[in-house]
């Protein structure tokens, strides 16, 4: 499914407001999260994933407001270096996650329409609070579907935090550099 882009000014303002609300009300700073705005429509959020032994590993998720809030933010797990490139499975910046039944992490996912035209290819953080879920033609129930006015970027970040915590999080998929 090709998503219609939102008006960039409205999307940026709405996304920023929603993110600020969630950040403040849920005490993200006190929980060790941080964020950096990279351009009008994108923010990279640092999430401290909690291991079962109590330690933490930081992951970096780039959120995009290209289709917000008609659709959820775009979500990309990235590498903490200039340009924030996409993280790949088998590298230190890709988390090992024993997924709950409502989420899966795909390093490379393809979706083609009935005519064989490729409509989606790339990393997919697969649950109904990411834009890529809809781009790749997944079909939620009405109760599961992103609903503007009911869901905000809070719904995306809270669930990312959940899968990066016990019992789901299993460490980085390769050792971190010293």
């Amino acid at each position: 499914m090709i998503l219609p882009p939102s008006d960039p000014e409205i999307a940026a303002r709405t996304f920023g407001s929603h993110l600020d609300t969630y950040w403040c009300n849920s005490g993200r700073d006190e929980k060790g999260w941080s964020r950096v705005t990279t351009d009008d429509l994108h923010t990279v959020v640092t999430i401290p994933a909690r291991r079962a032994d109590g330690g933490t590993d930081e992951y970096y998720v780039r959120l995009g407001a290209e289709y917000y809030d008609t659709y959820p933010p775009t979500v990309l797990i990235v590498v903490p270096k200039s340009g924030w490139p996409r993280a790949r499975a088998g590298t230190p910046w890709w988390p090992l996650v024993t997924s709950p039944n409502w989420c899966a992490l795909h390093d490379s996912y393809q979706y083609c329409d009935a005519q064989g035209q490729r409509l989606f290819e790339g990393q997919l953080v697969c649950f109904s609070m990411t834009a890529e879920y809809y781009m790749s033609n997944h079909g939620p129930t009405e109760a599961q579907r992103w609903t503007p006015g009911r869901h905000t970027v809070a719904a995306t970040l809270s669930r990312l935090g959940e899968i990066l915590s016990p019992p789901h999080y299993g460490g980085p998929s390769a050792p971190r550099p010293a």
């Binding site: 997924s99 709950p100 039944n101 409502w102 989420c103 899966a104 697969c126 649950f127 109904s128 609070m129 879920y133 997944h138 079909g139 939620p140 129930t141 109760a143 599961q144 579907r145 009911r150 719904a155 669930r159």
Partner: peptide, 8 residues
Amino acid sequence: GDQGGAAA
């Protein structure tokens, strides 16, 4: 609330 996932 509920959310859809990999199987949806």
